[in-house]
């Protein structure tokens, strides 16, 4: 399929972007950083095109559903969402080094998708349970939420590295030099962490609500404590705790960074672990 080919180029573009962002930290060359940014935009464009093309291919096959219905499609959409939030953050903060810690998520996702066997990549018609527009709303909102958490996690990892280095080199008045000088300041990293969660959390809320609405419409219960639902709620609780700690107790810096990383771990388990490890209604695990 042609869309598979565009997905290959997407992967390549993301990989180049990642390498350039890492080189940017090492070389401190503005142009390398700009190159990374351009590659990321090209990859994002290709990713968008590929998803659109796959949708078109599904229409040509007579099915016509949005490409959000199995593991393969969800992974490439996850990569797309990560880029979406990342590029928004880049427009706002213009911190190229962040790309070195965010692009790996997109690259890993895309590479994994490329390695899946052909039968997982093929466009399958939807079984009756999935024939609903709610599927589209539900998946889009959930994944944009997950993507926000991915960016927050990337920024938090950078934060911890930077803070650790600064403390070793003896206090705040000798800002970490060397490689670390390309990192955004700890204040900005902390802010990115927070802002990304502020985008991710309402989207996850909407994802849970649309999922509940769909479940109610499809089988008459908006909540059945199935493992996937429960895990999405666990993630929701963790980030709710993060936001409250932040709003009212001023939890910033280290503690916030760790909570964000833990939250993203739970997010990944919610997305993949539940399907691969536990059993339930959401069945892409078999893939």
């Amino acid at each position: 399929m042609f869309s598979d080919q565009i997905f290959n180029y997407t992967t390549l573009a993301y990989f180049i972007a990642m390498v350039l962002f890492i080189s940017f930290i090492a070389t401190k060359s503005k142009n390398v950083g700009l190159g990374g940014n351009i590659a990321a935009w090209i990859g994002f464009g290709l990713n968008t095109l590929a998803i659109g093309w796959r949708w078109y291919e599904s229409k040509s096959l007579g099915y016509g559903h949005a490409p959000l219905s199995n593991l393969y499609e969800s992974v490439v959409f996850f990569a797309w969402s990560i880029l979406l939030i990342y590029l928004l953050m880049d427009i706002k903060y213009k911190q190229r080094a962040l790309g070195a810690f965010v692009m790996p998520f997109a690259v890993l996702g895309m590479a994994w998708a490329q390695m899946m066997p052909d039968h997982s990549k093929s466009i399958q018609p939807l079984v009756p349970a999935l024939q609903s527009n709610w599927l589209t709303y539900h998946v889009i909102t959930c994944f944009i939420g997950y993507a926000g958490f991915a960016i927050a996690c990337g920024a938090s990892i950078m934060y911890l590295i930077k803070v650790g280095k600064e403390e070793k080199s003896g206090g705040a008045n000798t800002p970490a030099g060397g490689i670390m000088s390309m990192f955004p300041s700890t204040r900005i990293l902390d802010d990115i962490n927070y802002k990304a969660i502020m985008i991710g959390w309402p989207m996850l809320t909407l994802g849970i609500v649309t999922g509940a609405a769909w479940a109610n419409y499809a089988w008459g219960t908006y909540w059945s404590w199935d493992p996937k639902e429960t895990w999405s709620l666990i993630v929701w609780f963790i980030y709710a705790a993060f936001l409250h700690a932040r709003f009212t107790r001023g939890w910033v810096g280290r503690k916030a960074a760790w909570l964000s990383i833990i939250g993203f771990g739970a997010t990944l388990f919610c997305y993949l672990g539940v399907n691969l490890v536990l059993s339930g209604l959401h069945s892409y695990g078999g893939g």
């Binding site: 429960t230 895990w231 709620l233 666990i234 609780f237 705790a241 409250h244 700690a245 739970a266 536990l278």
Partner: peptide, 17 residues
């Protein structure tokens, strides 16, 4: 609040396992 949120998150895991 933080206690309940964390406890709800932690204990909810049991029912998924």
């Amino acid at each position: 609040t933080l206690f309940t949120l964390i406890m709800l998150a932690a204990t909810s895991v049991i029912g998924t396992v």
